[in-house]
Write a protein that binds this DNA or RNA. Structure first.
Length: 449
RNA sequence: GCGGCCAUCGUUCAAUGGCAGGACAUUGGGUUGUGGUCCCAAGAACGAGGGUUCGAUUCCCUCUGGUCGCCCCA
């Protein structure tokens, strides 16, 4: 018998294959894009709840910006020559011939909105938060997707380092409140354009003299992006840069003071931070403060670091896009990574509310009545479950049992006619018949106990 | 964009150049309108396309996807 089945299946496949006009339907999400299934939503909901609460607590107001912007908004702000712009953007032309891209991050769009809506006339700082998907055409791996979700805050129009500190405080707090206790904050200052430039030259000069000792990639970086040599993982490069000039030693007076004050604020906040002179962030618009949130886990001897988010100051961005000179600072968190980290750590999350009552029905007439009764229960705030599609009482009770409800209401043909309902206590198995009109009061009374 | 590893029911794990099997989950049943345990049954998979072969899920190639490392980043 099974043989027969197999043959027929195969021949079906052949018949299908023989229809060339029918395009193959791939039941598969595109690479790097995934479904977030109900089972994982508890983590995501918690992430959204905690982050939005923190934003509101600190006086940030939500802004939604388009998923699509003109491509040059991104290329100008993030910078030509960065991987994000050069190879990771989803760019396309519209039917009207406009060159647009899916956002690879939020900050550029927000700076655009700030300028477009004349927010510079609002009281400073303008505090905004956002959350939503971003897109980067990158090779997926753990914690990295082509569609990923970010939450972040931006404060525009304030140069005081106290706001930098507050940003770090917020990001750290969100992560911590999600139950991820092994968070570390790395901070650094990369200076303003003028002191960064001289530091950059110093660095090039230094590495140029030790060029032979660098790895192949770093030799290339020396030309393209010398700052990035600082976070190369190759042993020999680590050694070479040990005595490399550090950016914080070459800050101008203003940048130095700014950074010093930031560190003082952080100490005051008692946030466990570390100075990481090798921290440079890949986006062009950063100035002065840069920081990163890492989760550090030790599995065996291996220390695993996982970047959960980061941010920094971008004093030049708004002007670069054509607005007024506007100092600004922001951070963003990777929601996918937060949710994954929570799950990995088995972080305590509040449980999904469970139904406490089950409504079983028997017969056509009773089913009609049940539909109405369900609404009444649900409206009075009782979490009630049902399985109206099922026929037998047995299978319905099975479902009720599996759901772990405390009470099951049974409404059969007889009860429906008599205007009554059976109330069954699931723990004891005892049941009694009560007046249908008194169901809600009776349930409420019982659930209170 | 480059390299390594991987791909079997919904999930997880087997086996096999000649009928692909178990567990968990799902659905139904173990006589009338009563759950948990138990028992029985059913449905359910070789990622796609080529090649080698009498015959491929198995061997080879390509693609797709996953994963890890590089690049980069959240």
């Amino acid at each position: 018998m099974p043989r027969q089945k197999k043959i027929s299946k195969k021949s079906i496949r052949k018949i299908k294959a023989a229809k060339p006009e029918k395009e193959e339907l791939l039941l598969q999400s595109p690479r790097g894009m995934r479904d977030i299934l109900p089972a994982d939503q508890i983590y995501w909901q918690q992430v959204r709840r905690v982050s939005e609460k923190a934003a509101a607590d600190f006086g940030y107001r939500r802004i939604d910006v388009p998923l699509v912007e003109f491509t040059n908004i991104f290329s100008r702000s993030i910078g030509e020559g960065t991987d994000i712009i050069d190879k990771e953007m989803y760019s396309f032309s519209t039917k009207g011939g406009e060159k647009v891209s899916l956002r690879p991050e939020f900050t550029a769009g927000i700076a655009r909105a700030y300028i477009q809506h004349g927010m510079h006339v609002s009281p400073k700082p303008v505090k905004l938060y956002y959350t939503g998907p971003c897109y980067r055409y990158d090779r997926p791996q753990e914690g990295r997707f082509r569609e990923f979700f970010q939450f972040g805050c931006e404060a525009l129009g304030e140069q005081d380092p106290v706001i930098d500190a507050q940003m770090i405080q917020m990001g750290w707090r969100v992560i911590y409140q999600l139950g991820i206790k092994n968070v570390r904050v790395n901070v650094n200052s990369i200076g303003c354009p003028s002191c960064r430039k001289s530091y950059r030259n110093l660095l090039i000069h230094y590495f140029e003299s030790k060029k032979q000792k660098l790895c192949i990639d770093c030799k290339r970086r020396l030309e393209t992006n010398p700052l990035r040599i600082l976070d190369c993982k190759e042993d020999k490069c680590v050694q070479v840069r040990a005595s490399a000039p550090q950016s914080i030693d070459h800050l101008c007076e203003e940048c130095r003071t700014h950074f010093k004050e930031l560190l003082e604020y952080l100490e005051e906040l008692e946030i466990p931070f570390e100075l990481d002179s090798n921290l440079v962030r890949g986006l062009d618009y950063y100035t002065k403060t840069v920081f990163e949130f890492m989760s550090v886990s030790e599995s065996g001897e291996e220390k695993r670091k996982n970047a959960l988010g980061g941010g920094g100051r971008y004093d030049g961005l708004v002007k670069m896009l054509g607005g007024e000179n506007t100092p600004a600072v922001g951070f963003s968190l990777g929601l996918d990574r937060l949710a994954a980290e929570m799950k990995k750590l088995g972080a305590r999350i509040y449980k999904e509310p469970k139904p406490r009552v089950f409504l079983a029905q028997l017969g056509v007439f009773a089913k009609k009545k049940s539909l109405k009764m369900f609404e009444g229960l649900e409206r009075s705030g009782i979490r009630v479950a049902e399985s109206f599609g099922r026929g037998s009482l047995k299978s319905q009770l099975k479902v009720a049992d599996r759901l772990g409800v405390e009470i099951t209401l049974i409404l059969g043909q007889k009860e429906a006619i008599d205007q009554t309902v059976i109330v069954k206590d699931m723990a004891s198995g005892n049941q009694e018949i009560i007046d249908a009109g008194k169901v809600i009061d009776e349930i409420k009374r019982r659930l209170k106990k």
